[in-house]
Design a protein around this nucleic acid. Structure first.
Length: 438
RNA sequence: GCGGCCAUAGCUCAGUUGGUUAGAGCACAAGAUUGUGGAUCUUGGGGUCGCGGGUUCGAGCCCCGUUGGCCGCCCCA
């Protein structure tokens, strides 16, 4: 069709597509509001340096970036985190703490398309600023989970894998590794699930083979799946102040989630490291239980980022859920409801005279907020009733010559297939009483 | 950035060893049907066969290129 098509990876939302998207956004919004988060928004186009500052120069290959007519290097936003850090940083001194903010926005990444990944997508972003303790993570992970369960998903469908970059750091340092080596090992941990032993190759190339005793401990640590296992491993590592402080945070976090009834969703899983990005504490990722889809959501603590982007020191944690994989999951589980737009009232019109008589009532019903449809052309009655049913309307109002001669309109209940006359003056109240159930 | 598969109507697809004017179902529209229900029947509109080149008397079909899509790798903030 035509000479022009959408750019690769971009999406068009026909009405039925937009209805599904809006359904997702509506429940996300309701959920975030229930948790006391405030919604914000910000520019789609940002200075390129904002992302260079956060992620380094390589990031540019993954961005829609260009030079604008004023010579500024700009980029379509690939994520919300740097932006929200700037917003909060600007007013950090005057905002009430904790700062709980969310947004539903579109993002753009210049990447190869795959199932559940395109070049444009929407995310629910939720962040808490100003709260350094695991109380923030409790709130965030609870919101994350309720953002799933609001749609009917259960712990049979989704789970959240919970890990801790700080704990890894402290643990590896306790094993005697310096910071560059710790980072290299974390890189291997991140890829171990997918690559197996090959994940340690980059480390070996840089620093020589990893000591076998240490590697065994790393692999054992990586496989820990419970708080008890964590306690054991840390005790074996000789405890230490920082490690026991982390353990206390873990207990608080898991205890809080358990008290909220969310334990069935959450698993200790130190195999999750979330790249090498900017995370500084707890990190978590959500997946479908069957493991058929890409990650549904990801997040964690990033206490240094606001300051790194020029703001004040401000502890922060947050997560994002993408709409593509999430919608796929809802479809797969049959949790995307049929969302055909339905009329409330369909007006059946006899002829030109009756049309004009009907218009006044149509206008006032619409003014009252009812969704009212009528045929734009003169159409046989039989067809109009068919159209009335197909419109999804609850009732049909019949403006025929016989009725109008008697000063009435016929009101037909399309569900019960019953009808009665109402006086022309009382059409609006008759319609209202049908919808309010008298 | 790399690899595999694919591309015919809005959707799902058929299309004979290369042969005349490219078909079906669904969807849409009109009629049967000018006062009452999702049906049925009839009819209709809708195609640069993704695009460009090549081979051939002749290409939807074969060859090359290209664009786009799906799937995977890299990446995934």
């Amino acid at each position: 069709m035509g000479a022009f098509q959408t750019l690769p990876g971009f999406r068009e939302f026909f009405p039925e597509d937009l209805a599904r998207r809006n359904h997702v956004f509506r429940l996300w919004r309701r959920t975030a509001n229930a948790f006391g988060f405030s919604e914000y928004d910000a520019p789609v186009l940002e200075p390129l340096d904002l992302y260079r500052a956060k992620s380094g120069d390589e990031i540019e290959t993954q961005l829609f970036s260009f030079t604008d007519k004023g010579g500024r290097e700009v980029a379509l936003r690939p994520e919300m985190t740097p932006t929200v850090c700037r917003l909060v940083g600007e007013r950090a001194g005057t905002l009430k703490r904790p700062i709980k903010w969310y947004s539903i926005a579109e993002f753009y990444r210049y990447e190869r398309m795959q199932k559940g990944r395109g070049r444009c997508f929407f995310q629910l972003n939720a962040d808490i600023f100003g709260e350094p303790g695991p109380e923030a993570e409790i709130e965030l992970i609870a919101l994350l989970i309720q953002s799933f369960t609001a749609f009917g998903l259960t712990a049979e469908d989704v789970w959240v894998r919970l890990s801790d970059r700080n704990l890894w750091f402290f643990y590896l340092e306790a094993l005697g590794l310096d910071e560059p080596r710790v980072r290299a090992v974390l890189g291997a941990v991140d890829k171990f699930e997918r690559m197996g032993d090959d994940a340690f190759k980059p480390y070996a190339e840089k620093f020589g083979p990893l000591d076998e005793a240490i590697k065994a401990k790393v692999l054992a640590f990586l496989q820990i799946k419970s708080l008890a296992g964590l306690e054991q491993a840390l005790a074996a590592a000789g405890g230490g102040e920082r490690l026991s402080a982390r353990l206390a945070d873990w207990k608080k976090l898991l205890g809080g989630l358990d008290a909220m009834g969310l334990s069935p969703f959450v698993t200790v899983d130190l195999g999750v490291v979330r790249g090498l990005a900017y995370y500084t504490g707890f990190v978590f990722e959500a997946f479908d239980r069957k493991g058929e889809l890409r990650a549904l959501a990801g997040g964690g603590r990033y206490d240094d980022l606001v300051a790194k982007l020029g703001g004040p020191e401000l502890p922060a944690a947050g997560f994002a859920i993408g709409d593509m994989t999430f919608s796929l999951l809802l479809e797969q589980r049959g949790l995307m409801p049929p969302l055909a737009p339905a009329a409330d009232v369909y007006v059946v019109i006899g002829g030109q005279k009756e049309r004009e008589a009907a218009f006044a009532d149509i206008a006032s019903l619409r003014g009252a907020g009812y969704r009212v449809e009528y045929p734009m052309k003169e159409v046989a009655f039989g067809k109009q009733f068919k159209a009335a049913v197909e419109s999804g309307a609850r009732i049909a109002l019949i403006y025929g010559s016989e009725e109008l001669a008697r000063g009435v309109v016929k009101l037909r209940d399309l569900r019960s297939r019953t009808e009665h006359d109402v006086s022309k003056a009382e059409v609006a109240s008759a319609v209202r009483s049908v919808f309010t159930g008298q």
